[in-house]
Nucleic acid binder design. Sequence first.
DNA 1: AAAAAATAGATGACCAGTCGTCTATAAGTG
DNA 2: CACTTATAGACGACTGGTCATCTATTTTTT
Lengths: 204, 204
Amino acid sequence: MKITEKYAAKKEAILEKGMEVMWINGYNGTSVKDIVNAASIPKGSFYFYFESKEDFAIEALNYYLEFNEKLSESLMGDPGLSPYQKLRKLFKVRVDAAFNLFECECGDFQGGCFMSNLAQEMSDTNERIRTAVNEAIEEFKKPIIALLQAAQAAGEINAQLDAEKFMNFLESTMQGAFMTVKASRDPQALEDAEHFLFDVILKK
Amino acid sequence: MKITEKYAAKKEAILEKGMEVMWINGYNGTSVKDIVNAASIPKGSFYFYFESKEDFAIEALNYYLEFNEKLSESLMGDPGLSPYQKLRKLFKVRVDAAFNLFECECGDFQGGCFMSNLAQEMSDTNERIRTAVNEAIEEFKKPIIALLQAAQAAGEINAQLDAEKFMNFLESTMQGAFMTVKASRDPQALEDAEHFLFDVILKK
DNA sequence: AAAAAATAGATGACCAGTCGTCTATAAGTG
DNA sequence: CACTTATAGACGACTGGTCATCTATTTTTT
C-alpha cells in the first residue's frame, strides 16, 4: 500500500531525528516540542504517529537497535575476519556510534549508548520503558554472544569462560565506561575497558 | 553562633530528604515541589537555603560523598582487616548503600549510585553538574586507590597492575553494573562484576 | 463528495523561581 | 532590667513560561 509506505517512511524520519535529541538530552530532558522541531513536523502530527511520548521512546529503542545492526552489518558478514577480529572491530564500531554520532554536530563525548541512557534515567520510575530497554539489551547481546562462542571454538580466546556471563560483564562494563567518558569528557575509560576486557580477561 | 547551627541543621535535613527523591527520580524527574514535600517545608523556604535547583543538586552531591564516607568509616578504621579484606567489604557496603537505601521503602534494585545517576543524566546538558560530579567521583576514588596500593604492597593482589588505572576501571564497571541491576531488577550483574574484578583481574 | 490523513491551536496541569508578608528571636540601648 | 530595633527564617500565593495531550478543523487522497 502506498499510504502505508509513506506513513512508515515519515514515522521513521521522525524516529531518526527525535531519537537524536532524546539520545543527547534524555527522556525527561526532551519535550515533544523538541522532537517535532528536530523532525520539522507540526506539533499536532506527533500524536498522529505516536500514541504518547512514552511510546515514542519505546519505538525509538527498536529503531536504535536497527540503527546499530546496520552499522555492524558489513563487518559481521565479512568472511575475511575471524570471530575475535570481529569482536575487536565491533568494539570500535560501537564506540564510534556512541560518541561520534550525527557527524559530531553535538560536540565530543556526548551521547553514549541510547539504551543505557534510557535504562539509567527511567528504570526506577517507568516500568514499561524499563522492560523495553531490558529486552532491547538482550536482543543486542545475542549476536555478540555467538561471536564469543565462535572465538572460543576457534581457540582465539580463553575457552574456560562462560560466554554469556562474560557478555553480561562486557555489556555492563561498556555502559559504565560510556558513562564515565560522558562525565569526564575523556576517552580514557573506554581505552582502559578495552584493555582489561580483551587483553586481561579474554587472553588465552 | 546559634543561628548558623540551626540553619546548617535544617539545610542538611532538606539535603537528606531531597537527595532521596532525586536519587530515585533523577534531576529532571524531581521538581522543587517534590523536594519541599519530602522535606516538609514550604516552597519558599527552599530558596532561602538554596540558590537554585541546580545548586541543590551540586550540594546534594557533596552530601552524598559524606553519606558514603560515614557508611565505610568503621570498616576503614578497623585494624583487624587487611587492605584486601577492606576492599572486599567496601564493595559490599557500597552495593548495600546503592540498593537497600532508606530501609527499602522504595522497592528493590532502585537507586544505584547517586553520582553516576546524575552523571549519566546531566553530563551532556549541564556543564556545572558535569564538573561537580566529576570532582565528586575523583574524591570518592582516592581512599580506594590507597587501599589498592596497600594491598599490592602487602602482596595480597597482583602487584603488576597500575592501581589508579584499575581503580578507574573498577569505578566504571561498578557504575555499569548498577545500571544493569536497575534495568534488570536482578543483582546478577553485580555478582558477575565482583567475580571478574576480584577473582579474575586482581588475582595474584 | 466521502473518507482518510495531517495539522493548528487550545487546554489545563505543572514547572522553576519570586514576592511580600508574617513571626520569633536576637542584638542594641538606656 | 525593660524596651526597641533588627533580622533570620517561614510561608504560600503568584509569575511567566513549558509541559504532554487532545479536539476541531483543514488538506489531501480516493
